[in-house]
Amino acid sequence: MATAVKTVVDCISENCPMPLVKTRAAIMDAKKGDVIMVKGTHPQSYEEIPMALDAMDIKVLEQKYEDATWYITFMVS
């Protein structure tokens, strides 16, 4: 990816709602323009996090699954 990731939020093995809780905390600590990558394994969170980001007008830069781990990268606006 062209944009450098500033913060990685590790949610591997954590169930709902912890990935969303940790994502929200990372957003609260971030500055405008910071790029955050969340990685996890809980399937519902993979769908739930982009839904919450959309409601906050935060654009997802990349979303992918690799070997049962998902990655969601977004820029804080």
């Binding site: 709902c16 709602p17 969303l20 809780v21 929200r24 739930e48 839904m51 919450a52 409601a55 906050m56």
Partner: peptide, 23 residues
């Protein structure tokens, strides 16, 4: 659905409520 999920999603939309859920 679980209360804490609703609370989190509403919070991210700027609405502050609470739940009686354990978490």
């Amino acid at each position: 659905i679980e209360g804490e999920s609703v609370v989190l999603h509403l919070d991210m939309r700027g609405i502050a409520v609470i739940t009686g859920s354990a978490c």
